[in-house]
């Protein structure tokens, strides 16, 4: 049985914004019956702002919850802001998803992109790539993007995020090649960012607080929880859980898989996050 967060369960049991907007300004259709999940997102757009969003989803609990969360996130948002939403944002809004279910959040982001592209009358760039996974029709562009955005490091992780390789498995070699290519390119890009490892403690605290405010706290607050930065000692970051998070059995997972991951990506790759006991 999957361990879903209370937010996922709540959105699954009481999905928001179900339905289809008539005469929608943007329609995003992704997935298929064969794939086991599919999402139709319809948007009402007024003056470059999403004034309404509705969805219909065929899929498991996390697919339904991801769709519901997405519509809640984007309603009232400027399109330019909505374009910045990543699958990780959707997963974070839900307090996290099991790793095997991350593709549900990717489906949400893809539907949003498709709907915006439809509104603008543009073709989707990801659809133009070469299909690598025949079973699920995943292109090299989609896979490379997922590798870079979610910092994927194995074929298994690629499958969890994009479904590629989850069918017959014949494309595994191609996935490894894409992984190698992305990682080698990625290192070149990451290098300059890694170099200024000498940050003052004050700089670190400021940067950590920024990332926590932007990437972590909004998701926790949905669940009635919060997180406080207690201390920064070298690479050791001490945090304390607040509100509902203090009694949550998943708090350790949240700290390691959400907080530490975000801080390593956006502040310093060497940081270690521990809970204040």
């Amino acid at each position: 049985m999957w361990l879903y967060t209370d937010t996922v369960t709540e959105h699954f049991q009481n999905p928001r914004n179900v339905g289809e907007i008539e005469n929608a300004d943007g329609i995003g259709d992704v997935g298929s019956l064969a794939c086991g999940d599919a999402l139709r997102l319809t948007l009402k757009i007024d003056n470059e702002r999403i004034v309404d969003a509705k969805f219909k989803t065929f899929g498991c609990a996390s697919a339904i919850a991801s769709s519901s969360a997405l519509t809640e996130m984007i309603k009232g948002m400027e399109i330019s802001e909505a374009e910045k939403i990543t699958n990780e944002d959707i997963a974070n809004y839900l307090g996290g998803l099991p790793k095997e279910k991350m593709h549900c959040s990717v489906m949400g982001r893809e539907a949003l992109e498709a709907a915006i592209a439809d509104y603008r009358g543009l073709a989707l760039p990801t659809a133009e790539g070469e299909v690598v996974c025949e079973c699920f029709g995943v292109t090299d562009i989609e896979i490379t993007r997922a590798i870079k955005e979610s910092n994927l490091r194995s074929v298994e992780e690629i499958t969890n995020f994009t479904k590629a390789g989850g069918g017959c498995g014949k494309c595994a070699d191609k996935l490894v090649a894409l992984l190698r290519k992305s990682v080698s390119e990625g290192l070149k890009i990451v290098d300059p960012a890694v170099k200024p490892t000498r940050m003052t403690t004050l700089q670190k605290i400021k940067k950590i607080e920024e990332v926590l405010d932007r990437e972590v706290r909004p998701g926790l607050r949905v669940d009635g929880g919060d997180l406080e930065l207690i201390d920064v000692d070298g690479d050791l970051v001490i945090v304390s859980m607040r509100g509902h998070c203090t009694s949550c059995s998943n708090s350790q997972t949240t700290i390691k898989q959400l907080v530490e991951k975000k801080l390593r990506e956006q502040v310093l790759p060497t940081l270690i996050v521990e809970e204040d006991k």
Partner: peptide, 11 residues
Amino acid sequence: GSACTSGSLEP
């Protein structure tokens, strides 16, 4: 027999 219940992606 759905795909999603098993963690595999195929039914």
